[in-house]
Design a binder for these strands. Structure first.
Lengths: 250, 250
DNA sequence: CGACTTGTTGATGTACATCAAGGTACGTGG
DNA sequence: CCACGTACCTTGATGTACATCAACAAGTCG
């Protein structure tokens, strides 16, 4: 697990591979100009490395350019709760930039590339580019909505419902970003990650995944994941097959 | 349970009883001016009444002027998860204003007074008052932080830990707003609310509260709550006795 | 090759939910 | 004043969904 590495290389924002995706809103020229100037570099981290640590405050705000990460909190005795997963386009470190301190940690799930934005210039974004400021709020509200859903999941759904819900949710997010191939995808998670996200033990997670596989709703292989029947998954999860919101910002 | 009632009366923002509390940041004159103009009225709702409903989109953004409310989500079969509690100074309906739809509901726990802000003018706030826009983001980040904590609570703590944590958390929030008297406070919750917030059954919540009372950490009476030993509560909860962040906005 | 990581399975224990009944306070109408 | 209903809390009996413990299997990886 190497240390985070600061990259001299910097993908110019005009060529950002994310902006052309349907999930992101188009940028005005002045916005693009500012963001390009706002972005101070890139951070490349290996899978398994900590990006941000509980109780520290970072000088930067990040967006995920490529790869997967997850936010989590730990109790002194080692119990861990994964709060959510970050995919390309997601904001990381907002709490640290807006509040004083971060009260959660972030770890790279795969090799990860982050765009770096100095928090000192965040204020300039708010004063000069209200549309971008609104996007930041939009992202925060969207993340809160996902947290709401996750909390309902952990608090009130049964093990198999939760598991189906989480897997379906992650698959759909990956799909929006073009990270899937039909019903298959590269799956960076270990069963331990699923367990810690759902507030379950590893063993019980294993049993539950097996039950899902037995019911022919999905398949879980080493680092790959396949949905066999979305309907079945959705039915088990109690998933609302609804909206798809367009996405702004990097 | 009456319908929400729109009030002709409108507390002028200069005399807002919240602004003088230590927990809120001071306003510049222009900010005060704008907020006063932004505020379009007040909504008075009785305890037990729904303020916002899942899957609807409201034309307004709200702040709590007085009283308690809670956000929650329900599953089709009636299981309910309380997401968090709103006290004076909290923002409600941001998701509905920024995203398209609300995916949670809000109910008044006590009689409640809300300040109303038309979402149509939110954009004006972002363009003309970046400091206030930043405050909105600040509030969103703070709420996310509380949700993180709540998720850790429900996912990874035991029943007694969760319960102690929630009660201590609520007590401290009330204390910051001057809603307590020493170690006592008026407590608007039923045990059912605690159960639904913690993802536990009513019966088990009752047992757990009894255990907390037996250990002389707190007392729970009809609509009142008393902390007998903060240390004991904090110890059981695994609570971090730390910071207190100053509060901006209304 | 062993050492380690990840997944799998079974045996056992326990923290929780569910079911059922009753208790206390407080209201309402007679 | 009492009889009655309702809302909320309390307690016990029983069941189950989960955690914990322990062992092993199957891939990596040095």
């Amino acid at each position: 697990m190497g240390d985070p590495e600061l990259s001299a290389r910097k993908v110019p924002c005009e060529q950002c591979p994310l902006r052309c995706l349907a999930a992101f809103r188009p940028f005005a020229d002045v916005e693009l100009e500012f963001v390009k100037e706002f972005k101070s570099g890139e951070l490349i981290v290996q899978a398994g490395t900590a990006v941000l640590l509980q109780d520290t405050n970072s000088a930067h705000l990040y967006t995920v350019l490529s790869g997967w990460a997850f936010r989590y909190k730990m109790l002194p005795d080692g119990r861990r709760q994964i709060l959510n997963f970050a995919l390309p386009g997601d904001l990381l470190g907002l709490q640290g930039s807006v509040l004083d301190k971060m009260e959660h940690s972030v770890e790279a799930l795969t090799d990860l590339t982050l765009c770096l934005f100095p928090r000192a210039k965040l204020w300039e974004l708010y004063t000069n580019h209200p549309s971008l400021a609104f996007d930041v709020t939009w992202l925060a509200a969207r993340e809160e909505r996902m947290l709401d859903e996750h909390l309902l999941n952990v608090g009130r759904r049964t093990a198999i419902e939760r598991t189906a819900y989480l897997l379906l949710h992650l698959f759909k997010r990956a799909e929006e970003l073009g990270l899937t191939e039909g019903d298959n995808m590269q799956f960076p998670f270990l069963q331990l990650h699923v367990a810690d996200a759902l507030g379950m033990s590893l063993v019980h997670t294993n049993n539950t995944l097996r039950r899902l596989a037995d019911s022919k709703a999905m398949r879980w292989g080493r680092k790959t994941f396949q949905i066999l029947s979305r309907e079945r998954m959705a039915e088990i999860a109690g998933y609302d097959f609804t909206e798809r919101i367009p996405r702004p910002f990097i």
